[in-house]
Amino acid sequence: MGWLKTDTPSQRGVSESNEVLKASLTVFVKTHDVMIRKLSYKLTAEVEASKDLYQQTFLKAMERLILPEHLALLSPSGISEEKAAANWLYTICLNLYRDQYAKEKRWLNVVEPQYAEDSAQALKIEFAADPDPEPLEVLMREEERAVIESALCQLSDHYRIPLIMYYFLECDLKKISEVLELEISTVKSRLFRGREKLRKNLAAQEFSTANPIKVSGREV
């Protein structure tokens, strides 16, 4: 069992090794803190839910990290091990979200209108190329971002999670298919359909901006 063996070492040895373990966990959390905060927020789109998901992710990770066979994840010795640890943590976060939060969200979503697809109109927004935009442009960009984010929120998790994994986590198709237990062809199909639906949702939101719509309990 290596470092977890039950022999009785000196008190000093215990204290030192315990401190090292705690320090390792601290480094681990701090290393992945920002990305897991972002990922949990990206998935849940709510601060409270993302905090919960964030904490559950690390607590779940700790179940494994304290086992000697996962030492490489806790204290990676190179870039590839660091990347593997990050991927492993993302998978935990995604699975927790899928197991718990996605189910709740399914019932909490309030999305209207139902028939907006028929009135699809292109979203009349443009991203300015100007690196130093005017305050009004910044405001417009933020507005555009909010519209796209809300369209993303409306998307079913079947499409949203592969999209997040592909673009935000930059996972390849194989990795997505492994984590989500889907065929690669299905992943491709969901990415394609997800983007397509996102475009339609955006068109639908533009159609209804005159009448604010409810998305996840917030008015947009």
């Binding site: 290596g2 470092w3 977890l4 063996k5 039950t6 022999d7 009785t8 070492p9 008190q11 040895g13 215990v14 090794s17 315990n18 401190e19 090292v20 373990l21 705690k22 320090a23 390792s24 601290t26 480094v27 701090k30 030492l71 490489a72 204290s75 010795s77």
Partner: peptide, 27 residues
């Protein structure tokens, strides 16, 4: 506190059995 120990610790490398021996006994 622990975060502050990071720089001076051996966290950058993989621990070995001699580095970490039974951190739980005797507490």
């Amino acid at each position: 506190d622990l975060g502050g120990q990071q720089a001076g610790s051996d966290l950058g490398r993989r621990q070995t059995g001699s580095d970490l021996q039974d951190p739980f006994d005797g507490q």
